[in-house]
């Protein structure tokens, strides 16, 4: 314990605040991959959540159950499935995407999608049905009415987005299997932490862990801030 407090944590803080290029490159890769995955997953997942909340069709409840079940699927299983698809013998092997950031983004989209659908669906379900009806009867087109509903439940959707982002930026299984933890290319925060810990090099791991902690705190603080603003104005 003495070693941690006396040498590892100061070394980690030094790495973090001295602008260590390797550490900040890993952080940049993490944010780029996870940010891209969220941005790609958001439109389709919100549309899916909206359809599940507002339309009645056969199999709707089954679909909701499937998305809720997918929340519990381990990242490594998602990684393994995509690995088999993208590997040389797999159906998409010719695309040569394995061990690239694109493959990592695909894995993180697969992880984020059910979270966004499930939490988005809950947020939309709690919305007043009169939002859609008022928008439509006031002459808004279907896309504008959709946007209006999304605007009314924006805090719930923001919470879904933060939850999904927090989950995918910290997952190690899919990133390791699909990215391969290649320095300067696919090494992100969680894969770097796992590798550094296995080498017994804790300083870099602790520094990266601190980044994840600061990120989690910042996202929560931001969410509380905007929700608080919403309560004041509504």
């Amino acid at each position: 314990m003495d070693t941690i407090s006396s040498s590892i944590i100061p070394a980690a803080l030094n790495l973090l605040f001295s602008g260590d290029p390797e550490l900040w490159e890993i952080i940049a890769i993490s944010f780029r991959v996870s940010g891209t995955a969220i941005l790609i997953a958001m439109p389709a997942s919100l549309l899916t959540a909206f359809i599940l909340a507002y339309w009645q069709f056969p199999g709707r409840r089954l679909l909701i159950s499937i998305f809720n079940t997918l929340l519990a699927v381990p990242a490594v299983v998602v990684g393994l499935t995509l690995y088999l698809i993208l590997s040389r013998q797999g159906p998409l092997g010719e695309w040569k995407l394995l061990f690239t950031q694109t493959a990592m983004i695909m894995g993180q989209i697969a992880l984020a999608f059910p979270i966004l659908v499930s939490m988005g669906h809950s947020a939309l379900q709690s919305a007043d049905r009169r939002v859609w009806e008022t928008a439509r009867t006031l002459g808004a087109s279907a896309p504008r009415s959709f946007y209006t509903v999304m605007r009314e439940v924006r805090f719930g959707l923001l919470a879904a987005m933060f939850a999904a982002f927090g989950r995918i930026i910290a997952e190690v299984g899919a990133s390791m299997m699909l990215g391969g933890n290649i320095l300067h290319h696919t090494r992100n925060i969680p894969t770097a932490i796992a590798m550094e810990a296995s080498k017994g090099e804790f300083a870099l791991g602790i520094a990266l862990g601190l980044v994840l902690l600061i990120l989690a705190f910042s996202l929560n603080a931001l969410l509380h801030h905007v929700q608080g603003k919403g309560q004041l104005t509504t």
Partner: peptide, 15 residues
């Protein structure tokens, strides 16, 4: 939908 306007008993106010 374009020619009519329905007003709910408790009108909905957007945020």
């Amino acid at each position: 939908q374009s020619k009519t306007l329905y007003l709910h008993q408790h009108p909905y106010m957007f945020d």
